[in-house]
């Protein structure tokens, strides 16, 4: 749903999403890197478990929450990618009820 603008980018870094390697560039947010790489959504809604993606891109809407390097509830639109980052979707409360 997103694409990179311009050919010159920061140096390439590798991140892991749901166990799969993804190439990103230094200076990109985690959320942006994922959604430019074919990932369609970042989280499940808390009640309906429907897919959600960032709305605000500035830390307000909390639709970008991911587990990053073992920490839950990270606002991935505010966090820059780092080589080797391990990223997972969070389980929604709704999926388990």
């Amino acid at each position: 749903m997103l694409k990179r603008y311009g050919k010159s980018r920061g140096k390439t870094v590798s991140i892991w999403f749901e166990g799969q390697p993804i190439q990103a560039h230094e200076g990109e947010s985690v959320a942006a890197a994922l959604l430019t790489s074919g990932v369609k959504y970042l989280r499940h809604a808390q009640v309906s478990a429907k897919p959600r993606a960032p709305y605000c891109w500035m830390g307000v809407c909390y639709e970008c929450l991911l587990e990053i390097d073992g920490e839950q509830n990270q606002q991935s639109c505010l966090i820059a990618v780092k080589d080797g980052m391990r990223i997972f979707r969070q389980s929604s409360a709704a999926e388990n009820t």
Binding site: M1, L2, K3, Y5, R9, G27, E28, S29, A32, A33
Partner: peptide
Amino acid sequence: SSGVIPSG
């Protein structure tokens, strides 16, 4: 923040 634009 990321040099990214919507595709499509």
